[in-house]
């Protein structure tokens, strides 16, 4: 019964889509369901001479992972230090609050000017997208560590290093993981946008733009579906880790 409730809307959507496609009979506006499914079912077939779906998907994933990892390597330690040392917070806070509301895509011209057309610019855009949620959630996690936990291990002889490694880091890791999850979602959105930039010649974003210019909406829709599915898997996967490793967080009063 439950599963039925969950799939009924997508099924109705598919049906509506198919009816509209049949009625309009114009694959440039709405491609028929079966041609999209056909593309999705044969991901190894080269599309439009730009490599196949799997290759393009892997290229996008690789870019996201690279930009995301850089964002984590910088964002997590910076967030921990900002959350823990008020001087570092005061130094960086205004700067970060100023940069944070700028959408990652607004950085595109600067990225192109600094790094030229190519991989580095794309990584930069992804980095910007993932960085702020990771940083802000890390700071929030550190700030929410109960003071009494720190005091209690200080009376066991803990020094600054022990407090950071044995209290602050583990206590804030659920929040850090939440930041990583949100950051990964935004990074994934940014890669598609970055791949639509001039000079790009691979990845799902590129495939969407290129198929569009050739009027192949079936490939556009197939790529969109893959993007949606990977985004979902990413989110659920990290959510699973949250529940698996940080059960204590929800169970501690």
């Amino acid at each position: 019964m439950n599963i039925l409730k969950k799939i009924i809307m997508p099924l109705l959507g598919l049906l509506l889509w198919e009816l509209l496609a049949k009625w309009l009979n114009n694959p440039v506006i709405i491609p028929p369901v079966e041609s999209v499914i056909n593309i999705l079912m044969n991901p190894q077939t080269s599309v439009l001479g730009t490599g196949n779906l799997i290759e393009n998907t892997l290229i996008s994933i690789k870019r996201v992972i690279s930009g995301f990892i850089i964002a984590g390597i910088i964002g997590i330690p910076l967030g921990i230090f900002m959350g823990y040392f008020s001087t570092i917070m005061d130094l960086f806070d205004t700067f970060i609050e100023l940069l944070r509301p700028i959408p990652p895509l607004a950085w595109v011209p600067l990225a192109l000017a600094w790094f030229g057309i190519g991989e580095t610019s794309m990584l930069f855009i992804i980095f910007i997208g993932a960085f702020f949620p990771i940083l802000l959630n890390t700071i929030a996690g550190v700030k929410s560590v109960p003071k009494i936990l720190i005091e209690s291990i200080e009376t066991l002889g803990a020094k600054e290093k022990d407090i950071l490694l044995k209290i602050i880091l583990p206590a804030s890791s659920p929040s850090i993981l939440t930041g990583l999850r949100i950051g990964a979602g935004i990074a994934w959105m940014c890669v598609v946008a970055a791949e639509m930039l001039p000079g790009s010649s691979s990845g799902l974003g590129y495939l969407i733009m290129y198929s569009y210019s050739l009027g192949r909406m079936d490939i556009v829709v197939a790529s969109m579906i893959i993007i949606g599915m990977i985004g979902l898997i990413l989110d659920r996967g990290l959510k699973y880790l949250e529940n698996r490793y940080f059960k204590w967080k929800s169970l501690t009063k």
């Binding site: 009494i148 005091e151 209690s152 009376t155 066991l156 002889g157 209290i167 583990p170 206590a171 204590w248």
Partner: peptide, 19 residues
């Protein structure tokens, strides 16, 4: 001068590390 291991403290609040 500051906290030290030779003066261990037990608090009223629960202070175990939940993880």
């Amino acid at each position: 001068k500051g906290p030290g291991a030779e003066r261990g403290m037990v608090f009223q609040q629960y202070t175990l590390l939940p993880w």
